Simulated scan of single mutants.
Amino acid sequence: MKKRMATATLTAALLFSSLSVPAALAAQTTQAAEVQSSVNMRTSPSTSASIIRSLKKGEQITVMDKVNSYWYKVADSSGKQGYISTSSQYIELQASVPAQDGNAVALSSVSFRKAASTSGERIRYLKKGEQVTIVAKTNSYWYEVKDGNGVRGYVSTDSSYLKVTGTIPGGNTGGNTGGNGGGTVTNPDVSKDKQVEKIIAAGMKYLGTPYEYSSDRNTTTTFDCSDFVRQAFLDGVSLKLPADSRQQGQYVKDKGSITTNWKQLKRGDIVFFMSYKGTKASAYNGIDKSKATITHDGIYLGDGKVLHTYSKEGGGVTVSSIEGTHWEYRILFGGSAL
């Protein structure tokens, strides 16, 4: 009798322990994971569903939900969502860390990178309102931070991206939202010239990337004009501009320093254009450019050159000369977004 009771007790204990792990996992809303070998991310949990793209070995992703025994719903570092196999051959779940209050909060979407550099591989974007823990201030430009899943990476120290809400190891504290006193962490200004060069370098690496009208803002496989400008600023200095050229134009105007004379533009300025009317200057006579609609923009390189993308026929991201071309006649204004 005692033997049967002991056996029943052991069986119940084993059954409970086997159920407790999935229950704990089910309670988590998201979990970090690493791709172990190339695997297809699909539009729905089925092998017959369309392939969004192939995830690469070593890629960091977020598991959002376990749909069933065979499929996870995941998000890649750009935020694109899809479904992949649950097989451990393809994905390894990383140890989850209970959510913490942290000592900082993201004020806007910002790149979370593997290295303290704008060329460092992006793990993902931190979302506005996301709580993180600043582990250390690496230098004047970068924090080492830990997200709610325990994943470590680097984020810009620019105060427009992170608000420090607690103590940072090393003695810095947060809590103030303005002024120069108290515990506000202030960062030395990065030279504007250095920022400009970072933006241009980020844009130049996309030379030849195909043009696509109304391109997907979550990928870098194709660009339209404003998507390209936005990505160059995002990659270069972690500045997230508005999504379209008209909003970008207003953003630059709000900065308070624009010019309608392209020869007064500075390297790194964003330059805005009206619609194409023809190749001759006379085609634009009589147009009130102060009321014309922005239809295109690009990054001014200096020496009468603009870095931009405007059509498939134009070869995607390219460098064009302004003077004596329709680009000169179409210019509305330009200015700095920094």
Rank of each mutant, 00 (worst) to 15 (best):
R217G: 10
D254K: 09
S117A: 11
K114T: 12
G236H: 05
N40A: 15
I270L: 13
G315V: 06
G129A: 10
G82T: 12
T167S: 09
G314K: 03
G79C: 08
R42E: 05
Y329A: 00
K163N: 02
G174D: 02
S311Q: 08
L162R: 03
L93P: 00
Y141V: 09
Y161A: 02
G183P: 05
Q247P: 00
P22S: 08
T259W: 11
N285H: 05
V39L: 04
A26E: 07
S88G: 12
F223Q: 15
N176P: 01
F16A: 15
P169H: 11
D216G: 03
P45Q: 08
L241D: 11
Q81R: 11
Q31C: 02
A232Q: 09
P242R: 01
G249C: 02
R4N: 05
T86C: 08
R124C: 12
R267L: 04
R4M: 00
V67A: 09
G171L: 10
Q60A: 12
T325A: 13
T7N: 03
L19C: 06
S290E: 11
K305I: 08
R267G: 08
G324T: 14
A99F: 05
G150T: 13
A23P: 00
T7I: 13
A106P: 06
G278M: 13
G302D: 07
G129K: 07
T295E: 10
T9S: 09
L207V: 03
K2A: 13
G324Y: 15
